[in-house]
Structures are given as C-alpha cells and as structure tokens.
Amino acid sequence: ELSQEQQNLLTYILDAYNKHRIPQDMAKKLLQEQFSTEENFLLLIEMATTHVQVLVEFTKKIPGFLSLDHEDQIALLKGSAVEAMFLRSAQVFTKKMPHGHSEVLEERIRKSGISEEFITPMFNFYKSIGELQMRQEEHALLTAITILSPDRPYVKDQRAVERLQEPVLDVLRRFCKTQHPHKPQQFARLLGRLTELRTLNHHHAEMLESWRTS
C-alpha cells in the first residue's frame, strides 16, 4: 500500500498532469481542418511548441523540481521533452476516440513529410503503450520519471535529481502492484517502455535532420 506521503505525491503529480495539457481548440484543429503537407508540418510544429510549454508547467509542479539548479532544470527538460511528448501522444492514440478520429490524426502525421522509417517505430511504440492498458496515474508518474532522469546530458548534480526520481519510482512500483495484481510484470514493462522512448528520442533527432533537409 501507499503511505500517506506517497499518496500525496501521487495525487499532486496526477493533478498537475491532468491540469496541464494541450488546449482543446488546438486538438480540434488537428481533426477538423484539411491542410496541405506544408500546413501539416507547421501545425505539428505549433503542437510541439505547445507540448513543450505544457510540459514545463507540469514539471514545475513536480515536488522539488524548482529547487534544482536552474541549468540542471533546463538540461532535464531539454533531454526529456521529446520522450514526454511521445508518451503524451501515445495516450491520444490509445484512448477510445470517436470513430475515425485516430485515423485522421495518423493520416496527418503520415502526410507531414516525415519519412516512413521514423513513422513506423513511432506507431509501434503507441501500440506497445496501448497493450499495457495504463491508468492515468501511471502515465503521470512515468512522465515525471522520464523528466527526472539523472543521466541526461549536461546535468551537473545527478544525485539531487536521483533524490527526486527515487520516491516517484517507488510510488509507481507500489501503484502497479495494487492496481494490476494479476500482472506482476507491469512495473518492469513500464520501465522497459522508457528504454524504447530513448531509442525514439534518438530517432527523433535524425528525423528532424531529414525534415530540415527536405
């Protein structure tokens, strides 16, 4: 079971996660309007920018984050922004959406000039997240854990970051045990997705390069 302190940490992170999300008008725009390849590209850039702004607001609410060295805060956010973005997007694709919505979104991403070799692993990742049937709490905690990765480039005080990440990991581990009693591997699988995210992050950097070129 979670201690009162752990329950508080969970509630705090979950509330922040639910509160800071992409505005609905922007999400609607993605579904309703028809755009050319170039407009798709610009819309995805706008979405990505908003994603980062929302992510920063969420991160500020993670207990202890603002007490970290300012440059370390930036290093953590820079290192994790893409991974957090993929996690959030995975949720969009695994949620039950009105008929046809996920197809429209997928079509838009496929028609934004991104090469197929980057698209396929991304949708594979979304599928693998879907298979885990994660609860909102798991999404919120996993996002916080991703952000609080002490091994990101340019982080100076790794120990301080570890001290923030460890309690969140512990809450996630306990939460998985109580919420998925018949799936003892749930916690390990969630951590496995973080490894997959690192690969996507790496691909993403290559993808941006190919996008810039084209």
């Binding site: 980062v52 702004q53 920063v56 607001e57 500020k60 300012h70 930036i74 820079k78």
Partner: peptide, 21 residues
C-alpha cells in the same frame, strides 16, 4: 513565431513565465 524558437528557448521562456492558475 514559435516555429523559429529552438527547444531550449521555449523551455527557458516557459520556466521564467508565471504559472497560470
């Protein structure tokens, strides 16, 4: 426009901004 800003600029600006309640 936001599309001209790099990731680090967006993060720095957002970190400096006030939290919207």
């Amino acid at each position: 426009p936001a599309s001209n800003l790099g990731l680090e600029d967006i993060i720095r600006k957002a970190l400096m901004g006030n939290v919207e309640e």
